[in-house]
Design a protein around this nucleic acid. Structure first.
Lengths: 214, 214
DNA sequence: TAAAAAATACCGGGAAATGCGTATTTCTAC
DNA sequence: GTAGAAATACGCATTTCCCGGTATTTTTTA
């Protein structure tokens, strides 16, 4: 019997998952949480086999929550559940110790299969996630995010993230140990590649790409 | 028998709702859609009593989809489903013709009650949504969004939205028929009230407030 | 190994944003 | 009717961003 705990800030979603898993004889939902506070107190008490963890739990970051939980309960498995298929989200979640990453595009059958796989000690990734990972793992290739067919370079992504974190060009130059003029150039390339007019457009794309959260 | 159609881009979510509604004798899920294309073609064929409409369907805007559907099938009821409780989302959805607005915070019982209410010709709003509406409807009061305890004025919100839409101060001034200096001032006030350093911070808040979508 | 891509960096200039301050008029709520 | 909030607007200055162009070096790829 696999004991499952559901962490997601939307009660409708949790209720739906609970209802779905009621049909599975080898899976039992032992608890749920809509906030990190509930997550921490209830998981400590319930010690589930597996946590189904939404990575964007309202104001709480599922990535940090995962790291925190696994530090205290290393035997618990975490299966990430997300709408985000961008590699930055995936990698962060894996670094935090998650054993799987499931996209919300997946159907209930796939979710059940993922739960069983992860609970039995394997990893599980949605197909799209697997492809992203394979591409990343094959020889340590650079992450390249494709936007409108034009890839962003690793450095451009770094600059984009810092712009979205409200750093000025001068501050970015200092942090990356490069010239302001170089930051200028990256910034310009970003504007062109992303087809946006200014910083506002850049920030929107940074959020879309999962580089920062709102 | 109430025939229900589910529009949400996350299959796990749809599966969950379907599973939940299987327990209701007077409600039958006749279809589902993960995209606007599917929504349009299947709703035309199935003619459900009610559509449970997620207002952020990936790249599709549930608000526009609602308006479009109701223009063609005015008898169908739309119950909006959203994580967003900000008044801008609510009002837009109502203007599009939705008969109800349910937050994803709601549990399954409330969802079922909402479906029955809307299907029988009433409106239904989550409690938080009701309060927002009451406040707005009571004598045409201005919308004030509270951030960190300091409310933004109506004009500030307008300016914030246009900033996030990549307009320059000059362009905003032209659109709002005011001086650039005035835009300056609003912009300055926004920076201070929101406690952010620059445009990047403003855009993040615009997204948080639901003024724009990523 | 050669070519392509990426990273780095500069020139010059103007537009736009930020930041310090000020003020008056209009609107709203009591 | 009055006080306070909101909207409007200005002075001035500095900093930052955007944009036209250029180039070399380093790294990656085929």
């Amino acid at each position: 019997m696999i004991t499952v705990f559901i962490a997601d800030d939307h009660k409708i979603f949790r209720d739906g998952i609970i209802s779905l898993l009621e049909n599975e004889e080898d899976i039992r939902v032992v608890g749920e949480a809509g906030s990190e506070e509930e997550l921490n107190t209830r998981v400590a008490r319930l010690q589930p086999d597996l946590i189904l963890m939404d990575i964007s739990m309202g104001s709480t970051n599922g990535i940090d929550a995962t790291e925190s939980i696994l530090k205290r309960f290393p035997k618990i498995k975490v299966l990430a559940l997300s709408m985000h298929s961008e590699s930055s989200y995936i990698l962060k979640m894996l670094e935090a110790g998650a054993s799987g990453y499931l996209l919300k595009d997946a159907g209930s059958r796939e979710m059940v299969a993922a739960i069983r796989s992860v609970a039995s000690g394997n990893t599980y990734f949605s197909q799209q996630v697997s492809q992203t990972l394979l591409h990343h793992l094959s020889g340590g290739k650079k992450i390249k995010e494709k936007i409108a067919g034009v890839p962003l370079t690793k450095r451009e992504i770094e600059v984009l993230q810092l712009i979205a974190e409200e750093f000025s060009n001068a501050e970015i130059a200092e942090r990356l140990f490069i010239s302001i003029r170089t930051v200028d150039t990256h910034r310009r390339n970003l504007l062109e590649k992303l087809g946006v007019k200014n910083t506002a457009g850049l920030v929107k794309n940074a959020i879309r790409l999962g580089l920062i959260h709102t």
